[in-house]
């Protein structure tokens, strides 16, 4: 470990701890997942960056949205995201979650993911190479240091808006809201 980092550790040990131990949800949401097995095995070895996949969202703090998001998957993504404990970070792969990418006219893929859940960072490329994934993650470290990776805070703050967007897409949702919705609405009005 770098000696300069000791002061950082002492200042905010919790932040440093979760920053260097990203537990990724095991959820293959799209085609970018094909580069995750090479990244976590011997050749690229994601564990040197502290990235390790875990089985359940209850133990995870990093969610990799690997590529395009179909409407059926988005429901599963929202549920998985809401199950993750805070602090949690989301990184999306490729251009498809930004604006639809090459599926801009597909009737079954949503065009921008950050209308439904907050996204902390995007990695360019189709597929992003393992190096790009690591660059994305190291950049996320910087954002965490600067308190800019605040997706989960935004989700809590603006939950009423996120929920409204989700309901506009799906109609009535079949699970209860994560945070109280009515109170917030009254406060805003």
């Amino acid at each position: 470990m770098d000696r300069n980092q000791i002061s950082k550790w002492l200042k905010n040990p919790g932040k440093m701890a979760h920053k260097y131990s990203f537990h990724v949800v095991y959820f293959c949401t799209g085609c970018g997942i094909i580069e995750i097995p090479p990244s976590i095995t011997t050749r690229w070895d994601a564990e040197r960056f502290g990235i390790i996949p875990v089985a359940t969202p209850r133990q995870a703090n990093l969610f990799l949205i690997t590529g395009y998001v179909s409407t059926k998957t988005l429901k599963a993504i929202i549920r998985t995201y809401e199950q993750m404990p805070e602090p949690k970070y989301t990184v999306a792969f490729g251009s498809c979650p930004i604006n639809g990418g090459m599926y801009y006219d597909s009737y079954n893929t949503i065009t921008s993911l950050d209308k439904y859940i907050p996204v902390d960072g995007y990695i360019a490329g189709c597929m992003p190479r393992p190096e790009a994934v690591f660059i994305g993650v190291t950049h996320l470290w910087k954002l965490i240091d600067m308190d800019k990776a605040d997706g989960y805070k935004r989700y809590r703050e603006d939950y009423v808006h996120y929920r409204a967007n989700q309901e506009q897409l799906y109609g009535q949702m079949d699970w209860p809201p994560l945070f109280p919705v009515e109170k917030k609405e009254q406060a805003n009005l």
Partner: peptide
């Protein structure tokens, strides 16, 4: 269809 459904959803 895309413009009328996904496009109509406002950003946060």
């Amino acid at each position: 269809y895309v413009n009328n459904t996904f496009g109509k959803i406002p950003s946060i």
